[in-house]
Design a binder for these strands. Structure first.
Lengths: 217, 217
DNA sequence: CCAGAATTAAGTCAGGTGCTTGACTTAGCG
DNA sequence: CGCTAAGTCAAGCACCTGACTTAATTCTGG
């Protein structure tokens, strides 16, 4: 088994090269504006079809990038979740929801591209579905939802769904904004990812606990 | 001057045809996934260069679509603003911020495509700037910001900026989500655009008035 | 009623795209 | 040591794209 390393190492290396080149180009220029050829070249592969060989279609490449990060994010979420188990404080559950992505970006160290990539993919009419498939299969996310439900039992199911969507948008797009600001050396409202997550948490807690003005009936 | 009508009418009609065809295709398939050719064809123009003739580059086309809607949205915002002048209730100013887009979409009648278009353009790394230029020149938006500032004088400037960004993301992306759900006949949390705006308002008010947990110093 | 301009139609062109093909390189194994 | 198979490379294919050119059509102003 140890003999497999040499070749397999090399393959994994080029796969990783393609993955990170694609992530960077996608974030900077837009997923659809970048061709597989350009990704291959940026990854230092003379072969213009390297992406096709290793990943298949562009959608598969996007999925691979998403999956790579999601495993890290998932483990951070699991760790936070362990600390919140049984809590009846909304803030604890919101932190489980809000902190994993910023914390993951902090771990990666500057510069990062994943947040911008993520925001784009989540907004694109055809790529969106890929992201949903990748991230909604997370069991830990389900546990957070249940935890929040227990904290806010009288919140109507519709409103709960609505505010869940809102939280998702906020987390992804605010991370993308901050990441972009960092890349362009523009001033950011917060000094670091942890503080940014705190600001996000303040808002998301307020959001979940906001009174619901009656409509219709 | 009345004699101009026949010719100019026709030209404006094809321009409008191109504009709405582009808006629909962009929303459904993605701005960059649709070529100018496809837009021209979808608009019923035998000329594959009709887009180029009438608008120039794709960025110009995007700008034209954005501008068309922004004039309507701006007038709705101005009307709401008149009712809020002098108020010290956060909710009044939030309504000015939150209601124009949903109300505009309601006026257009189903199906609409602008919200999805808008969300994409705002997220794209190169198109984003166009949208910012188009929408940030609005003087009425400035007035809303000032109104909110007067209601929340002790909120730090950084946090104010941060929460302004959040509100923008929420308005655009939640509208896009609802629009997509409408297009796909998926159930929506709210029965109509007005109620959706109310739900959005509840959250945005809570967001602006949320306590700020101290960070750093 | 007509000359001239604006708009639409139709075709062309160079360049870029995804995908496929076949040759070359190299690791692993008998 | 030579064979096999996986990975890499380079070239070619059919197709699509934006940009440009030319012709036909339509309307305007005189």
């Amino acid at each position: 088994m140890a003999g497999r390393t040499v070749r397999e190492e090399q393959v994994n290396a080029t796969r990783e090269l393609i993955l990170s080149a694609a992530e960077r180009l996608f974030a900077e220029r837009g997923v659809l504006a970048v061709s597989n050829r350009q990704v291959s070249e940026a990854a230092g592969q003379g072969n213009n079809a390297a992406v096709g060989y290793h990943f298949g279609t562009k959608a598969d490449l996007v999925r691979a990038i998403a999956r790579k990060h999601h495993v890290r994010i998932e483990s951070i979420r699991a760790r936070l979740l362990a600390g919140a188990r049984g809590s009846t404080d909304v803030r604890d559950w919101v932190d489980c929801l809000v902190r994993p992505v910023p914390e993951h970006l902090a771990e990666l160290g500057s510069p990062t591209w994943f947040a911008r990539f993520c925001a784009q993919v989540m907004t694109d009419p055809v790529l969106q579905q890929i992201m949903v498939e990748e991230s909604m299969t997370s069991p830990s996310l389900q546990q957070i939802v249940e935890g929040l439900n227990r904290c806010l039992p009288e919140l109507p199911a519709d409103v709960r769904a609505e505010r869940g969507e809102m939280a998702r948008h906020l987390i992804v797009h605010m991370a993308a904004d901050r990441e972009r600001a960092l890349a362009e050396n523009t001033p950011t409202p917060r000094a670091n990812w942890h503080d940014a997550a705190t600001g996000l948490g303040d808002v998301v807690v307020a959001m979940w606990t906001a009174p619901v003005t009656p409509t219709g009936s």
